[in-house]
Design a protein around this nucleic acid. Structure first.
Length: 111
DNA sequence: CTGATGACTGATA
DNA sequence: CTATCAGCCATCA
């Protein structure tokens, strides 16, 4: 598939994250049919700042925000998450832990 | 072509 | 718990 389709799939996967829930970069990529492209997901978000995309619901595999604590992006993301009822503590989302947990919480354990 | 870079990941110590 | 390190993929100088 071309990069256009890949990007579209990724955006769709991100939009599929329910409000108040979160998912990991790797899980988004896998859900989009692009296993191993976690960095591609990250790159898309860094370039396409689409206000319609719930990019703030995308976290790293360890459940942490991808930005360094205190940075602009960090504050932006943590604030948006809290606005949806997600508890963020020291850059980490409460209730979510490892990669396997992130996605299974919103899309189910297996696929 | 080669090496550097990055909103990444998993394994090890 | 944190710190390294080696993979990883796409892009760019």
């Amino acid at each position: 598939m071309d990069s256009e389709t890949a990007a579209a799939r990724i955006r769709a996967a991100i939009r599929a994250i329910p409000k108040g829930q979160v998912a990991g970069y790797g899980e988004i990529a896998r859900r989009a049919g692009l296993p191993g492209r976690a960095r591609l997901v990250a790159r898309l978000l860094s370039e396409n700042e689409d206000a319609k995309l719930p990019w703030h619901r995308v976290l790293r595999s360890d459940g942490r925000i991808a930005f360094p604590e205190g940075s602009k992006g960090y504050r932006e993301q943590s604030q948006r998450l809290r606005a949806e009822g997600v508890t963020v503590e020291k850059g980490r989302v409460r209730g979510q832990r490892a990669a396997a947990t992130l996605d299974s919480q919103i899309w189910g354990p297996a696929d």
